[in-house]
Amino acid sequence: MPSLDVGSAADDTLELRFPAELLPLLAEADLLESPAAWGAAATPFGAFRLEPVRLERDLDLLTRWMNDPEVAAFWDLAGPVSRTAAHLCEQLDGDGRSIPCLGVLNGTPMSYWEIYRADLDPLARHYPARPHDTGIHLLIGDGTNRGRGLGTALLRAVADLVLDNRPRCTRVIAEPDMRNTPSVSAFLNSGFRCSAEIDLPEKRAALMIRERALRNLL
């Protein structure tokens, strides 16, 4: 897979790069609608929905997940509850560019998601962003839910929820760590393609893209 830099001329990157300071103006003021209004998605494992995080309700659970060794290896948020709280509060107290959510399957919280405006994120400095690109981060909180295809099913469901509820968004973006083979595989199996490898400050990442125009073909 080729490495991508700002001057790359890969087929899917021949488009105008907007200066970072102009992107908020292109956002037309609206940032992210609450995923709470998106409803549930049917998956082979049951009904799945996104529930925005409430700190007083969810902090202990999320701290426990962040201290799971398999999660900590890539999220780097292991430690006391204050560390998880600081990470969450940065989004909860922000301007709406990122919304932290619990993933609830058949009524049980079992994963953590961040839905964010990739075009208004520092990530946009590392790839040719389009207005309203929407990014996702995720982790599966319970090890018993890993390694059985659940991540693939949920990634497809969440990407569909984004595209169904954000009509201006033409692409769903993700940037899993290249070392996280199960995560990269789950994205590929859920209809994303690997556009490039990019060097971010904290990792070398696979730039994963799911195109609205191809959603029914992949």
Rank of each mutant, 00 (worst) to 15 (best):
A86H: 06
A86G: 14
H87S: 12
H87F: 15
H87T: 03
H87W: 13
L88H: 07
C89A: 04
Q91Y: 09
Q91F: 13
L92N: 13
D93R: 12
D93L: 15
D93E: 15
D93S: 13
D93Q: 14
D95H: 11
D95L: 13
G96W: 12
G96P: 12
R97I: 11
R97P: 07
P100E: 04
P100F: 03
C101D: 07
C101L: 05
L102F: 10
G103A: 10
V104Y: 08
N106T: 01
T108Y: 13
T108R: 15
M110E: 11
S111F: 08
W113D: 14
W113A: 02
I115S: 07
Y116V: 07
Y116N: 13
A118S: 15
A118Q: 04
D119Q: 08
D121M: 03
D121Y: 02
R125W: 05
A129V: 08
R130S: 13
P131Y: 06
H132G: 00
D133C: 01
T134I: 15
G135E: 11
G135P: 07
G135A: 11
I136C: 12
H137Y: 01
H137E: 02
L138Y: 12
L139F: 00
L139W: 03
I140G: 06
G141M: 06
G141I: 01
G141L: 13
D142E: 15
G143I: 07
N145G: 08
R148F: 12
G149K: 10
G149F: 07
G151M: 13
G151K: 01
L154S: 06
L155T: 14
L155F: 11
L155S: 14
A157Y: 11
A157Q: 14
V158M: 08
A159T: 07
D160M: 12
L161E: 05
V162E: 12
V162Y: 03
L163Y: 07
C169R: 04
A174N: 12
P176G: 07
D177P: 04
D177Y: 03
M178D: 04
R179M: 05
S183W: 05
S185R: 14
A186R: 08
A186C: 06
L188W: 04
L188I: 08
N189V: 00
S190F: 01
F192M: 02
F192S: 05
R193N: 02
